[in-house]
Design a protein around this nucleic acid. Structure first.
Lengths: 164, 164
DNA sequence: TATTGTTATACTCTATAACTATA
DNA sequence: TATAGTTATAGAGTATAACAATA
């Protein structure tokens, strides 16, 4: 697999469609001053890195997040998963179908309320989750690779100060 | 307009669908450690803030960016605009149609190459751009409102170090 | 009557393909 | 033959609406 060491010079390939804003002859006006614009560019970059590192068109970052929460919280109902990840109920259904088709999760009928299920990761699902965690950690490290350790930890703190 | 002073406590209304990750009883596992996850949450927050501040469903952040570049670079061709903003040519066409319908830009036939146009902001377009700049600056300030001045400037620097 | 989950449907973005008019 | 721009079309992703089963 040639993606394992593809951290250093791969930024241009990995950024599929994002403006560069260091282009000769184009004046971006206010845009480079806006934090929001930089946030978007970083997000596009991060999403591209992760998508490439995962290397499986079916597994989106969001679907990985779902598997992560299922693995960490065995037996949650679909409504609870939907709320935890800010998904709609139909979206949750479809995403769980995806993981169920891959044998990674199972829906177990609840004895107490036969309308709903408890969602559990299978042992295959737990192995898949472990595999994805390594991949995701690597993509996140690649995202931070232009920062020092101190800068990266500052960056994480500042991000949380904004969204928490 | 009640949105003018809606900076302080409006975060929950402004964040339409983003997980909170400080929920009791749900373990998010690896997710809170990932910078990429925080970047996405901040982006969703920023997009929501800006969309609400603009308060016009037609004017997306991307369309504002286009008007900004047109205003700063009179006479660019559509292919150049497309490249500068990493848009497809069809996407550029449609976005320019939007601003042309609003009387904000005009396509002027080039004498040198009758296939293409020079794109210019009209005087109405320049006024609209000025109006939007104020709105966008305000949304960006709101995005940074939980940070001190120093933190905000650090944050901008770190973002650029990642995406530039 | 309200809730869980599913299916059907629609809407937005964005991407590609096909077309025109020029070069 | 290649390029600028447009129009048509198709694919994700995500939203709502309608439905079936159960409470």
């Amino acid at each position: 697999m040639d993606q394992d060491l593809a951290i250093p010079d791969s930024r241009t390939e990995v950024r599929p469609r994002a403006p560069i804003m260091a282009r000769v002859g184009v004046d971006y006006g206010l845009l480079p001053e806006l934090a929001g614009v930089s946030v978007k560019l970083v997000w596009v970059y991060a999403h591209g890195l992760l998508t490439r590192e995962i290397n499986d068109p079916g597994i989106t970052p969001l679907r990985y997040s779902l598997l992560e929460v299922v693995g960490q919280n065995p037996g949650l109902q679909q409504v609870q998963l939907a709320e935890a990840l800010a998904l709609t109920r139909p979206g949750t259904s479809v995403a769980l179908d995806f993981w169920e088709d891959r044998g990674c999760i199972e829906r177990r009928k609840l004895a107490t309320d036969r309308r709903s299920f408890g969602i559990f990761a299978t042992s295959l699902g737990m192995r898949e989750l472990e595999r994805l965690r390594a991949v995701v950690r690597q993509a996140d490290a690649a995202l931070m690779s232009s920062l020092t350790e101190d800068e990266a930890s500052q960056f994480r703190q500042l991000l949380k100060k904004i969204h928490l």
